[in-house]
């Protein structure tokens, strides 16, 4: 991990929902062009953590964050930090596919349009490029102007990934992107991740140990708001330092 460059550097991150502390002294490094998997039992703070990386928790009333989250060396919680620009560079794919109630085309060009792209040809090009990237082009090229909500769950999720790619982010955050999908759709998205990581930095929350093992380069194990262990995935899965980590990945609790 020495020669990989870092995208996010997290230092003593604490997060409170009102008086409840959901994240406790989190230190973590997220490396460029790698897949980092976040694992841990339900309620341990994985979603909360991944949402601190694009400041999505700002939407929730009464959230207080302390500590440092540095993205490209900049403290994203600094008062004058440009959150819009952060979210442009750090895209997110949610657990439940959430396409807008618009056409497939309009879903994908939403981000580019919001950021000022008006050229029709350029937008068309973006749609084709991103849909090809997520291997959805062949399936939907004849119905680009039909409602996105008419797609299957797996197709919707790939559409959401394409919508995220259309903004040309540097990082993609994924919170259990395949938990609502069947095994076929899941494996399509997994192989997609392997291609995407060439160009993007990926952070993925998953409850599926095989998935974490298969796709990720690094794995962090969360428990009760703390990160118990972070390491290369093969080390976490073959020779974890922490007893709890081992118990969790071998399925003895969680």
């Amino acid at each position: 991990m020495e020669n990989a460059s870092t995208k996010f550097e997290i230092d003593k991150l604490n997060l409170f929902y009102g008086s409840f502390q959901a994240l406790i002294d989190i230190d973590m490094t997220i490396y460029t062009n790698k897949i980092t998997a976040l694992i841990g039992p339900s309620g341990c703070g994985k979603s909360t953590f991944i949402r601190t990386l694009n400041r999505m928790n700002d939407l929730i009333l009464g959230v207080k964050t302390t500590g440092l989250v540095k993205f490209d060396e900049m403290d994203i919680y600094a008062v004058d930090y440009d959150v819009i620009n952060l979210r442009k560079k750090v895209g997110m794919v949610f657990q439940k596919p959430n396409p807008f109630p618009k056409t497939i085309f309009e879903n994908i060009v939403y981000g580019p349009k919001v950021h000022g792209e008006k050229n029709r040809d350029k937008l068309q090009e973006i749609v084709e490029k991103t849909l090809k990237e997520v291997a959805l082009w062949e399936e939907v090229k004849d119905r680009l102007h039909k409602p996105a909500l008419g797609l299957s769950g797996g197709q919707q999720q790939r559409l959401c990934i394409a919508r995220c790619l259309a903004v040309e982010p540097e990082v993609i955050l994924m919170d259990e992107p395949t938990s609502a999908l069947d095994p076929v759709a899941t494996s399509k998205i997994e192989s997609l991740l392997e291609e995407l990581v060439e160009k993007y930095t990926i952070v993925i929350v998953t409850h599926n140990m095989q998935q974490a093992g298969r796709v990720s380069d690094y794995t962090s194990f969360f428990l009760s708001g703390k990160v118990l262990e972070t390491d290369k995935t093969e080390i976490i899965f073959s020779n974890p330092t922490n007893k709890k980590t081992e118990e969790y990945i071998t399925g003895r609790f969680g």
């Binding site: 999505m56 807008f100 981000g111 919001v114 995220c164």
Partner: peptide, 21 residues
């Protein structure tokens, strides 16, 4: 749904853009 708002904001839209679009 909250997920529409989250989807829009996560793409770097402003709150106003999210509301109007």
């Amino acid at each position: 749904p909250m997920s529409y708002r989250e989807g829009s904001l996560s793409l770097g839209a402003t709150k106003l853009q999210t509301i109007t679009r």
